[in-house]
């Protein structure tokens, strides 16, 4: 009798030879293999006093190839919710269709008088909960939707709302959020501007837009899978969603490039 539980239920090594782990991985059941194909990079967002700003660039990459250059990764859901998608673009499209189906069905059941219609509309928190359940269910089926999503807008109390969900169904919320490369490069800048919820109350829309633009520039400088065209949306209390999809990065400075030596075909 083998006294080590590890060996129980396995063919005996002294009779059958060592177990060939190529047949069955020791770490569990056979898994689907997959990876994202056409991908979008970071999405960043920051809360301010009466709303939220979100931005993402317009590039969809195929590996290292800048494949599609006018891909809109921010989606307006309704008058108080905008979604930003990072990761696989076809999965984002799938989610977009899922959400439009949801929106149509919601409208069927909210044909009450116009005045309270807005209160019945799905708010940002509702949508985040919904997406979190979709994403967690898909990961539990070993068939994930390969995205990191930011949900921004207003919650049921018309307060600014910002939260994320990723391909594992992991969710969290913070005054500033950034997916992908942005988590490394933009998040520190955003946190310096808005360290906590108390700072949110002091933040103006203009300053929030300013810091987001600054982050988009940093990301373009340092993220090789980014582009200098981006989309930005602002959701604000008692205002219509403002979504611009063809912003150009302004005031780029590449002067430092002059001083870089040692790459390419320079004659020093």
């Amino acid at each position: 009798m083998n006294h080590f539980p590890h060996g129980w239920g396995r063919p005996r090594d002294d009779v059958y030879g060592a177990y060939n782990h190529a047949y069955l991985q020791p770490d569990g059941s056979k898994q689907h293999t997959q990876s994202p194909i056409v991908t979008g990079t970071s999405v960043i967002a920051v809360k301010f006093k009466d709303g939220v700003v979100i931005a993402a660039d317009n590039l969809a990459s195929y590996g290292s190839l800048a494949r599609f250059t006018d891909v809109k990764r921010l989606r307006r859901f309704n008058s108080r919710v905008v979604l930003g998608f990072g990761g696989d673009v076809s999965d984002m499209q799938h989610l977009d269709r899922l959400l439009s189906t949801l929106s149509i069905r919601e409208d069927y059941s909210s044909t009450a008088s116009e005045s309270d219609n807005a209160a019945r509309e799905l708010n940002a928190r509702n949508l985040h909960t919904y997406l979190a359940k979709v994403m967690y269910k898909r990961r539990s089926e070993f068939n994930p939707l390969w995205n990191a999503i930011l949900v921004v807008g207003l919650d049921g109390e018309s307060q600014p709302f910002l939260a994320t969900v990723d391909l594992l169904g992991t969710t969290f919320s913070a005054p500033t959020l950034a997916t992908g490369f942005g988590a490394h490069l933009a998040q520190p800048i955003l946190r310096r501007a808005v360290p906590d919820e108390a700072a949110v109350a002091e933040m103006t829309r203009e300053k929030a837009v300013g810091v987001v633009r600054e982050c988009m520039k940093v990301l373009f400088y340092r993220d090789a899978r980014s582009i200098d065209k981006y989309s930005m949306a602002v959701v604000e209390k008692e205002k219509e969603v403002e979504l611009v999809e063809d912003e150009q990065l302004e005031q780029q400075s590449w002067a430092f490039a002059e001083g870089i030596k040692g790459y390419g075909t320079q004659t020093v």
């Binding site: 898994q31 689907h32 293999t33 997959q34 990876s35 994202p36 194909i37 991908t39 990459s61 195929y62 590996g63 290292s64 990961r139 539990s140 070993f142 994930p144 594992l168 992991t170």
Partner: peptide, 28 residues
């Protein structure tokens, strides 16, 4: 030949020549 991997993409081949699979890990 150059389906994207999780690692940075290079124009030259990786050292390991065997098939590389990226299995989805449902945990973190």
């Amino acid at each position: 030949a150059s389906i994207p991997q999780e690692a940075p993409g290079y124009s030259f081949n990786h050292l390991s020549s065997g098939t590389r699979e990226h299995a989805f890990n449902p945990y973190t």
